[in-house]
Amino acid sequence: MAAELLRESFEIQGRNYDKAGEVSGEIKVILRDLGIEAASLRRLVIVAFEAEMNVVMYARRGTLTLILTEEDVNLEVRDEGPGIPDIELAFKEGYSTASDEMRELGFGFGMGLPNMKKNSDELKVESEVGKGTLVVAKIRLNSNA
């Protein structure tokens, strides 16, 4: 793995729809100001937002850690939530365990994990029911221009 240039962690509050999206917003500003090229930035922000929303919707709290190297951006999202019993099923488009309340707010269409997979180069999900979930996404940078 290429040398780590930057590592920053952000707290995500579960069930707080009012603040939902602020962490991915912050990450976007950091990476935009660092001049990460547009295509990678676009994918990154989508992955970060979906990950953040999963924590907000299902967990008590979570942490998103941004790790930047010269070759890629890694997002590690760790939460204290219910865990995912069947990870394979969770990756199916349209599969969702969202409540009506979440759907009312425009979330929970079962596109979260599929969207994250589509927009990252590597995606790992580890989960323990009753304890929590760890999602690790890697997005390669196209160039260091």
Binding site: L5, L6, D33, L34, G35, L68, E70, A145
Partner: peptide
């Protein structure tokens, strides 16, 4: 292209820190 981008990513991160 913003002015800061003339230097490489490593230098941009150093500046940010």
């Amino acid at each position: 292209r913003i002015e800061g981008e003339v230097v490489d990513l490593r230098e941009r991160v150093t500046r940010r820190k």
